[in-house]
Computed example of a mutant assay.
Amino acid sequence: MADLPRIGVHFFRLSEALQPYFTALYLTVVEAGDELVTDWLHPEWATMRFTEGPPPVASIGPGEMVPQWPFVAGGPTSMATHFSVGTSRVWGLGLQPAGWAKFIDTPADALANITVDGSTHPAFAPFAGILPIVLEAGASDAEKAAMIDAHLLRQADRPAVREAEIAACQELLRDPAIGEVSVLQDRLGMSAKSLERFCCRYFGFTPKLLLRRQRFNRSLAQYLLDPALKWIDALDAQYHDQAQFVREFRAFMGMTPSEYAALPHPILDPIIRQRMADAGALADKDGASDLPTIARYRRA
C-alpha cells in the first residue's frame, strides 16, 4: 500500500461542434485504498463532475468540507475549492460561458461559488443523462466518452444566446494587456451597467472581479506550468508588485503563495502533466481551447 495513492488522468476529445461550449471532458482515476486524497482547485468556470464510487467532500472558500453528490455541478468560482476524494473514478466536464448561455437558463451569478445536486437541480437538467452513462456497467472508457459526446450533441440544437458577444468578451478577458473595465466597455460597445449585467449573467461575476481573477489565474498557471519559476517570475504584468499579488492570492485561494506551494497537489498536478503531454495531439488551432481551465489562462 506504500505506493498509494495512484492518480490517472485521461482526456477525451469532444466533437468540434461542442468545443466552443465546453473546456474539456476528462476522467480522473483515484486509487487511494481506504484513505482520502485532498487538493485545492483554483477559481474556474462552471464545472460538472460525475463519480463512479463514493462522491467527494468539498468546500468552496472557507468552511467545513461537506459531502457532495454523484453528479455535482456548480457555477463559476472566485474562490478555491478544497476537496477530498477516495478511491473512485471521476468524470469532469467544464462549461465555458458560451456553454452556460446555451444550455443553462439560470443566471451564472445565481450559482457562482456554490455546488448543487446536478441530478435534481433544474438548471442542469440537460446534463442529467450523463450520470447513467458514467455508471453503465460493461462499457469501456472510450465508449462512455463517445456516449457523453453523443448526449451533448443531442442537446446542442438549443439556440445560441449572445454567442458572438460572449466569445468577444472572453477573448478580451484572456488578453494580458487588458486590465481596465473601461477597455472592455469600449471594445464591446457597452455601457458600464450593461456590461456588468452581461458579465454577471453569463460569466458569473462583475467585470472588475473577472479581470482580477484572470490576472491571478494567469500568474498561477504560469507558476504551475513551469516548475523552475519562483512566484516573482510568474507574476502577471498587471500586478503592481508582489505584495499586491500576495493579497490577491489570499483573497482567491484563502492562503499565501508560500503556503500553497508547500501543499501537495496529487490531483491537479497529474491533470496538468497529462494535458500538457496530450497538447500536441489534441490542441486546436489556438493551442488553448481543449486545455483544462488553469492551463488556458496562460498566453504566449
Score class of each variant (00 low, 15 high):
194 S>D: 15
253 M>I: 12
19 Q>Y: 05
185 Q>G: 00
71 F>Q: 06
153 L>I: 05
188 L>H: 07
43 P>K: 07
59 S>K: 03
99 G>L: 08
172 L>A: 09
142 A>V: 14
160 A>Y: 09
160 A>M: 11
34 D>W: 06
26 Y>S: 10
146 A>P: 00
243 A>K: 02
33 G>D: 10
23 T>G: 12
250 R>M: 04
220 L>M: 12
14 L>I: 01
139 A>M: 15
167 A>N: 07
268 L>N: 04
133 I>Q: 03
135 L>F: 03
228 A>E: 15
296 R>A: 15
141 D>C: 02
196 E>I: 08
258 S>M: 12
26 Y>C: 09
2 A>V: 14
296 R>M: 13
179 G>N: 06
281 A>M: 09
287 G>C: 12
234 A>P: 08
53 G>M: 05
96 Q>H: 10
244 Q>S: 04
15 S>T: 13
71 F>C: 13
238 Q>R: 01
209 L>S: 04
45 W>D: 15
202 Y>F: 15
23 T>F: 04
248 E>T: 05
145 A>L: 06
260 Y>E: 01
238 Q>E: 11
213 R>P: 01
298 R>W: 12
168 A>I: 11
68 Q>L: 14
59 S>F: 10
283 A>Y: 02
161 V>E: 00
258 S>C: 05
213 R>W: 00
236 D>G: 05
200 C>N: 12
153 L>Q: 08
76 P>I: 10
98 A>P: 05
190 M>C: 04
40 W>Q: 08
172 L>H: 03
6 R>M: 05
126 P>N: 10
153 L>K: 04
218 R>F: 03
61 G>P: 05
175 D>Q: 03
65 M>H: 00
84 S>M: 09
46 A>M: 10
122 P>F: 06
106 T>L: 06
115 T>V: 15
270 P>N: 10
256 T>S: 07
218 R>D: 08
136 E>C: 13
109 D>R: 01
89 R>G: 03
196 E>T: 15
272 I>D: 04
93 L>I: 13
48 M>Y: 01
69 W>V: 10
203 F>Q: 01
193 K>D: 15
106 T>D: 05
231 W>Q: 06
250 R>Y: 03
274 Q>S: 09
48 M>V: 13
77 T>P: 03
